[in-house]
């Protein structure tokens, strides 16, 4: 035989990237700057609008950990979101706990729900997995509608505490600051997952599950980890919801808008990177909020649909993909 080989070209330099610690620090600083800027505005509407947009940043970022990184499309985002919201109602009512412990409880409930869903459904793929997650939303909503302790189909009122934690001047400002913190944490978690060994394994199984297994990747275990993290974060996104409107009922908590937005925002921003859901959520949620106050809240899903169709046709890898050479 001939010993044919090709001449080796000089290796290209790998792009440098920020370490995990530096990114967490940068996220914390960005969160502080945002809270300070909103405080300077001092408007209750600004607090509300920012909280509305940031809850979608958390939701879309959380969805993307399973849907974007691992390629498993979850149509049941609203179920996890509502599970977080109703955990706040249930834990608050049962133990009289304030918002922050309720958010921690929501993370536990969402994580357990994610793990359970994963165990039951992750041997399914593609459309079958998506349909199974859609069923989860229907099952959970039926349970909540029939659970009187959290208001059942009538819904539940959640009264904001009179005492506002220091150094905030209103509960709306405190709620907004909490959501800023959650959004910064969600983005930092997503980026840590993406750049870690876990993210590498998820990217491999997203591209080719059989090849990933052959390369030593424990695909089932990784998918369970992803569903658990994603579920916990989606529930965290929904945990402050009862305090945002002071009222919650099953039809709105399990609303189609949450499920659709959780998918549309990462798709529009780009699913392969932590920045995609952030960009998509800020863009789409701001647009919806603007439409709500200028046209009608009924136009929200129409806007999502139109923007999604435009991006699927013009930029299938999302806004971030446009700048990254469609990777």
């Amino acid at each position: 035989m001939s010993g044919a080989t090709l001449p080796a070209a000089a290796p290209l330099a790998a792009p440098r990237r920020m370490g995990h610690g530096a990114f967490w620090l940068a996220s914390a600083l960005a969160a502080l700057a945002l809270v300070a800027a909103l405080r300077a505005l001092g408007s209750e509407y600004a607090y509300f609008a920012a909280t509305f947009v940031l809850q979608y940043v958390v939701l879309a970022t959380a969805w993307n950990i399973l849907g974007g990184y691992a390629g498993y499309v979850n149509f049941g985002a609203a179920a996890f979101f509502a599970a977080g919201a109703y955990t706040t109602v249930a834990v608050g009512k049962a133990f009289g706990l304030p918002l922050l412990p309720c958010i921690a409880a929501a993370a536990l409930v969402g994580g357990a729900l994610g793990l359970g869903t994963g165990v039951l459904t992750l041997r399914l793929r593609g459309a079958y997995f998506a349909i199974a997650t859609l069923c989860l939303s229907v099952v959970l909503q039926t349970l909540v509608v029939n659970w009187d302790f959290v208001g059942g189909s009538r819904g539940a009122y959640v009264v904001r505490p009179r005492e506002v934690p220091w150094p905030f001047d209103s509960y709306g400002g405190f709620l907004c600051a909490v959501m800023v913190g959650l959004a910064a944490g969600a983005v930092a978690i997503a980026r840590t997952v993406e750049k870690s060994r876990l993210g590498l394994g998820l990217a491999a199984l997203r591209d080719d599950e059989a090849a990933a297994e052959a390369a030593g990747v424990p695909t089932l275990r990784l998918k369970l980890v992803a569903t658990t993290i994603s579920g916990a974060m989606m529930a965290v996104a929904g945990a402050p919801l009862p305090y945002l409107g002071s009222y919650i009922e099953p039809n709105s908590a399990f609303g189609l808008a949450y499920g659709v937005n959780a998918i549309a925002m990462p798709l529009i921003g780009g699913t392969s990177s932590w920045a995609g859901p952030l960009v998509g959520a800020v863009l789409l949620a701001s647009l919806q909020q603007a439409a709500t106050v200028t046209i009608s809240s009924a136009a929200n899903l129409l806007i999502v649909g139109v923007v999604l169709v435009v991006f699927v046709c013009a930029a299938p890898h999302g806004i971030v993909g446009l700048f990254r050479g469609q990777r």
Binding site: G201, D207, D208
Partner: peptide
């Protein structure tokens, strides 16, 4: 069956 979303060296980093 390469991992098409990963670079060549990332394909090797997986195993």
């Amino acid at each position: 069956r390469p991992f098409r979303g990963l670079t060549v060296i990332e394909n090797i980093r997986v195993p």
